[in-house]
Design a protein around this nucleic acid. Structure first.
Lengths: 233, 233, 233, 233
DNA sequence: AATGAATGAGGTTTCATTCAT
DNA sequence: CATGAATGAAACCTCATTCAT
């Protein structure tokens, strides 16, 4: 039972937070509105004072998350002009964000398929901004002779793929702290983009390379259930 | 309408093929057994002559696909010893496969979340083989001084991320033919792995780098519907 | 058609009443939830606001009926000490109850087979109380030299068999009014239990013994259908 | 898989035997034709070479059982004229039959409710013969001054109720061997019928009456499942 | 006779959604 | 705002029955 005095805004925030967690754990289709309602102390009928319907809820959730991300990213990139610095900032933001808001990062990539065509178009438009920004940076870097790639579009995709890995994989936090992660990914991305300084002069990090691989394990989800979103390729 | 007494094997193959397509388009949860049955000309109850239940169908589908992949991959790798050649073979196999069997490639990574815990464990075990093979190759290459990476596990993941991109992105086929694609990805992967020869001596391919980016567009799905599985990050 | 928002308790009572009637007429397996819902003016899905599932509904129905019976019986027996009086009270209660609540009396003995093993155990436990009470009384009577039987358990069963006959047979009400019925059964039971006073000094009741037999006929059930639960041995 | 050479008659017998067992264990509604077919080594479609349909199968099963019973009974009663002897013979036949063919005895009383109205009428007609025979004997005995009852019809029913008890109760065979059982029931029935000689001069059988009651226990059915037909009043 | 593949009706159950209270 | 009771569509699944082979 909700406490008295919970205002519309507060309840809605709680619903969104619960929605993110539940969609992350079960997927949009498998999450029922009863589950959602119960986890904020409401009956399912009462949800309709806060959301229009299930689809609209997903749409707004994804939209808000992505818009916030774009705003945050643009703030980081705002005063940088050098492509290398921009890529660094981009990687730092991206990886950190996935580290901190794993659920959000996961659902915005996995639940688009559940949008209606119209809603999909809107979200897709927003989401292209990220892709566009990377392309822009890469093109910029190529133009200045800092990066060397065969195809800007394909390279941008590859960069995004590497960056979004952590949303799909679990890295054991004890082994790989955030800073190391960013460092490793930065190196790989710069290499991939053909930045000469990073070419082949790596010193293996911390421990023997052969052993750490085995440490990357899927983490169990709630209630002994495997976290359902593990990328298992 | 299908005849009484038609052949089991044929019908089951049709069901599997339709299942792959429908899961690819709508997702497992959103695909109904009515849809599946209708698309092979059966009533929904008739499916149960061929499948145990919906969950079991997904399980067998994923299992068969992955086992076939593993077998095909092992055949390709069988007689190669040099890590560089192995990576090349791996990339070639992987990208070609995604090009040719996009649907299969997509669902084995996206529908694992819909498996029951027990089935998930089985599929997860199989699927780790792929990851393990890449790690093995990378470790091998590092040992021979051919690759230079900070962390074998993380590098293997990055390689897999780059390779599996095409399962999530649409590359316009007119622009990027398969061979070019393989070449570009191979180069990026070798760079990422620190192979000296690939470091920074790229000659841009065919056309002007700035324009090709715009060509990478989502493709429309069936019936004017956007293909719902686009990776939209 | 039932209104939205009508009262829970009332609806559930209606469902139970309809359930008793339908199970009595068709049997639990043959009663569909659609039938049950329709007969209280609901859609079948709406039942699930009141019941957990079909099995659970049967379980609660039987449990409630039996518990009410036990409570009612114990009230009747409460202040009696003499075994003869107790048997009289028992017979009176039992026969009257079957006369008034034929459906309930029938289903608690005929539908146990449809319970899951766990539910069966619970109901069986409750239901043994009745049997136990009869045994107790008989044993008590034997100890005081009022009854003479070869085997208490077997006699108790025979008594129960005679008593529960009316739940399986139709006695034409015009012929045999309740009080006569009780009297006749009481006499037979006391004879069966070896009470000397009842041994062989019967005066035939009211009418000629030869003719009344033909009066015992199956009664037609609803819609010209024979009541399906007639005991037909 | 059936052996070669199984003839129509043999297969049909096997189906009937399996049907009796399965209906006894699960009930007619809960027995599926697949179960029935499998338990005689057939596929369900093949049953239709031997039965018309499920309802007709039940009908013929019950009919055959009852007709055989009537024939057997009439043979026993054929040369007896004394009502006391006839009752004795009846009891002996009835109890022995239930002891030996428990399944048959059970289903002919419990599955009538699953017959269509038309089939029910037929079976009901047959089954009345038993009841009629008891009434005839009782009336005969009353006329000769051997029995004394208030109402022939009610007494006949009570006798039948006592007799059919063993089809619903489990008597532990170790404790109560068939002969003892018959003896006890005969005594109770004669008492109930007012035969002076049996009135109140019983000597408790074998063991102390107070203890044997507890020995009458429900027996577990197949696979740890409680035998589903236990009479649990 | 037997089988395997199919039908089609219908069963139980779930769930987004509505609305009187 | 919130709830509890309801709808109604549709989901998964079962099963008696049919029929080409």
């Amino acid at each position: 039972m909700r406490q008295r005095g919970s205002h519309r805004a507060g309840t809605f925030s709680a619903i969104k937070a619960a929605g993110i967690r539940l969609i992350y754990e079960h997927g949009y289709e498998a999450m029922t509105l009863r589950m959602l309602a119960r986890s904020v102390g409401l009956e399912s009928g009462s949800l309709y004072y806060h959301i229009k319907d299930k689809q609209d809820f997903l749409f707004r959730l994804l939209k808000e998350i992505i818009e916030a991300n774009i705003a945050a990213l643009d703030e980081k990139l705002a005063e940088l002009d050098d492509p290398e610095e921009q890529i660094r900032a981009f990687i730092c933001f991206f990886i950190t964000h996935q580290w901190e808001k794993k659920e959000e990062a996961f659902i915005i990539s996995s639940e688009v398929r559940s949008l209606t065509p119209e809603n999909y178009q809107v979200i897709n438009g927003l989401t292209r901004s990220f892709q566009d920004r990377v392309e822009e940076i890469v093109r910029h870097g190529v133009a200045r002779g800092k990066f060397r790639v065969r195809n800007v579009g394909v390279a941008a995709i590859a960069v995004c793929d590497v960056l979004s890995g952590p949303a799909r994989w679990y890295y054991p936090k004890e082994l790989l702290v955030l800073d190391e992660m960013i460092e490793m990914i930065t190196e790989m991305v710069f290499r991939l983009l053909g930045v000469p300084a990073y070419a082949a002069n790596t010193i293996p990090l911390c421990r023997n390379a052969a052993s750490s691989a085995a440490d990357i394990q899927p983490k169990a989800g709630p209630a002994g259930f495997p976290a359902r979103h593990l990328w298992v390729r």
